[in-house]
Design a protein around this nucleic acid. Sequence first.
DNA 1: AAATCACATACCGACGGTCGGTATTATAAG
DNA 2: CTTATAATACCGACCGTCGGTATGTGATTT
Lengths: 215, 215
Amino acid sequence: MARNKYPEETVRLILEQALALFIQKGYDDTSIQDIIDRLGGLSKGAIYHHFKSKEEIFEAVCNTIGQQNMAYFDGIRDDQSKSGLEKLKMMLRAGYQNPNCNAVIAVGRRIMNDPRFFQNEITEIYKLVVPFYVQPVIQQGIADGSLKTEYPKELAEVLITLINIWANPAITKTTPEEMRRKLLFLDKLLHGIGLALLDSEMLEQYVELCRRYNE
Amino acid sequence: MARNKYPEETVRLILEQALALFIQKGYDDTSIQDIIDRLGGLSKGAIYHHFKSKEEIFEAVCNTIGQQNMAYFDGIRDDQSKSGLEKLKMMLRAGYQNPNCNAVIAVGRRIMNDPRFFQNEITEIYKLVVPFYVQPVIQQGIADGSLKTEYPKELAEVLITLINIWANPAITKTTPEEMRRKLLFLDKLLHGIGLALLDSEMLEQYVELCRRYNE
DNA sequence: AAATCACATACCGACGGTCGGTATTATAAG
DNA sequence: CTTATAATACCGACCGTCGGTATGTGATTT
C-alpha cells in the first residue's frame, strides 16, 4: 500500500486496533506485530512513522479515552443553569449515564489484569478529574450556597477516591449487595459532614452498574 | 562457582539483588542479566533453577516485603491486652512506626514509576490488609464495646483506602501542609460517624512522614 | 522539479526463556 | 564405612521474539 492521502485515518486505525488489542490481551501481551496484523496491509513502518514507540501508542490510546470522558464532564462543569451541588451529583451519576460508559466498562474489565491501565486510571483521577472538574464544581457550590465545606479540595479527592477506586467494581471485586452497603455507608459518612449527595435512584443505578460489570 | 550446599541462601541472594534493582530501575528496566551480574558468579541457570520466570521473581520479592509488614500487624491483632479501638489506632500508626518503614519508603518512591509495584500495593490492601487485619480488629472493637458501627467491613475499607491511597504521599504527591489538611478533614469525617481515631500526635507524625518522603 | 510525506522492508541488538550437560550432595543398600 | 544411585544446584550456549532503526520508494505537495 502506497501513501495515504488522509494520514489521520491511518492514525485512527492504529489507535482503534491497538485499543481493541490492549483490552483483549493487555499491554505487555500485545506485540507491535499483533497491531500490524490488524491494519489491513499496513506495515511496521506506518506505525513507527506516526508513533515513536509502543509506549506512545498506549498513551495516545489513553488520551483518546480520557478526552472522550472529559468532554462529558466539560459539559456539566460549564453549564450555567445549574447549582454546584446539582453539578456534583451529575458528575457522580456520570459513572452510569455518560454515553461512553460501555467503553469504560470494557477497559475496566482489563484494569486488574493490566498494571498500566490500572496506574493510568488512578493517576488520571488526581491529576485531571479532581483539580479540573470536581473541585471547581464544589467551589461553585460553596459560592452559590448550594453546599458548605471548609475543605473543598479534600472533599473532592475523598469523594472521587471512594467512588472511583473503592466503589469501583473494576478495582475492588464487588457484588451488587456489597455495592449497596458501600453506598449506604458512604451516604452515612457524607451526612455526618452535612452533605446529602446520594439518593436512592443513584444507589440503585450503581448497584445495577455493578451487576452489569460482573456480567 | 560450584554447587551451594545451602540453596536457600542462593534464593535469598537472588531476591535481595532483584529487590534492589527493582527499586533502583523498576521492573521492566531490570533485565535478568542485570540480576545475574550482581550474583557474584552465579549464572542464568541458577536463577531459572529456583524461579520459573522473571514474573515469579517479582512475586516472590513482593511476598517477602508483604510478609515482613504483616508480621508486625500480626502482633497487633493478636495482642490480648488491648481493646479493638486501641489496636485500630496502632495499625494506623504503623505507617510511621513499624520497624520496616524505611524499606516501605524506598519501595514507595518507586511506586509511581512502576505500574507493577503500584498495582501490587493496592491489590494487597483489599486482599490482605483489610480482611485479615483491619476488619477483625474493628469487629473486636464492636464486641468489646470500644467502638460502634453497623458497617465494620466498609469502615475498614474506607479507612485503609483513605490512609493508604489518598493520604499516601507515594501515590498522591502531597506536601506536608496538604497532608495536615487531609488528616484534619479525615478526622472531621470520622467524627461525623462518631469515631475519634486520630489524635494530634498521629497527625504530626504523618506530616513528618510526608516531609521525610519528599526528601 | 524539488522537497516532503507516508509508508515498505530489511535488519539489529537485547531480552526472556530453554535445554543438554556437569559437578556436587543426599540416600541407602551392601 | 563403602559405594552405587538418584536427586539437586548450577552452567552457558542457544533460540525465538520483541521493540526499534536505517534506508529505500513512490505518491503528493509546493
